[in-house]
């Protein structure tokens, strides 16, 4: 049994807009994510998946409860320490790629390698996602799948301990989506990077070690896959 990388206890996040308007995005969540596993978060819109991912990644603060990254209590960290945590340990992949349009593929990856403590070369990261031949292209010259793979290269270039992916295939067709999932799978296999993927696509769950289903800010169910399938077997 691998050791836990993330552990939450009674984690809640409440958004207040206006005086009486209160949205409980997370409501007392207890969850464990394990080292070197691929974990898929499933659930309808507004069920709290993205909120959880943001808190795990140090992008957002919980309203109450505790989050441990290994032995560190993330909820106790101030902004400066959270920045350091993101810089040293976390890789993000977003649905809309979030590439800087004025930087080439290589330079977008370089954004991370410039500040990370022990990064790989940008070209190496891009080769890992199969984009060794497109490193000097600007985002506008890349397809959606290519852009997302640049984003993955950017996320893994720092050799993160965890890779957090928010709907990485959400904006892609099935063919390019599979390429992206292949890339994520490769990273997880080769580096043993704990990977958390949010998705709407229930089929993707079959490539994960563990699947966590969300409903209205609660965890509805946790499943463990005995038999994982390869990304190219996934049908959209």
């Amino acid at each position: 049994m691998p050791s836990p990388v993330f552990r939450t206890e009674n984690l809640s996040k409440i958004y207040r807009s206006g005086e009486k308007n209160e949205v409980r995005a997370l409501d007392g969540v207890d969850l464990t994510v394990f080292e070197s596993e691929m974990t898929v978060l499933l659930g309808p819109s507004g069920s709290g998946k993205s909120t959880l991912l943001n808190i795990l990644g140090g992008l957002d603060q919980a309203t109450s409860g505790t989050v441990w990254f290994r032995d560190t209590d993330l909820t106790a960290l101030q902004d400066r320490a959270l920045t350091r945590y993101r810089r040293d340990h976390v890789g993000f992949v977003f649905q809309f790629y979030n590439l800087v349009p004025s930087l080439t593929a290589r330079e977008n990856v370089q954004l991370v390698t410039d500040v990370a403590p022990n990064p790989m070369r940008p070209a190496e990261a891009l080769e890992l996602v199969g984009l060794g031949h497109r490193i000097n292209h600007f985002p506008a010259a890349l397809s959606g799948g290519e852009q997302q793979r640049v984003a993955i290269a950017r996320a893994i270039a720092k050799r993160p301990d965890v890779l957090l992916c928010d709907e990485p295939t959400g904006a892609l067709d099935s063919k390019t989506g599979v390429q992206v999932l292949e890339a994520l799978n490769t990273i997880n296999d080769r580096f043993g990077t704990a990977t958390v993927i949010i998705t709407h696509n229930a089929d993707i769950r079959r490539m994960a070690h563990r699947v966590i289903r969300f409903q209205d800010g609660h965890i509805a169910k946790v499943e463990v896959n005995d038999h994982r399938i390869a990304p190219h077997e996934i049908v959209w």
Binding site: G57, L59, D79, R80, T83, R84, R86, R87, D88, V90, F92, F94, N98, V100, L111, V112, V115, A116, R154, K158
Partner: peptide, 10 residues
């Protein structure tokens, strides 16, 4: 947001 997510400081 991205820069901050990547670990750039404020």
């Amino acid at each position: 947001g991205l820069l901050k997510a990547l670990g750039y400081t404020n």
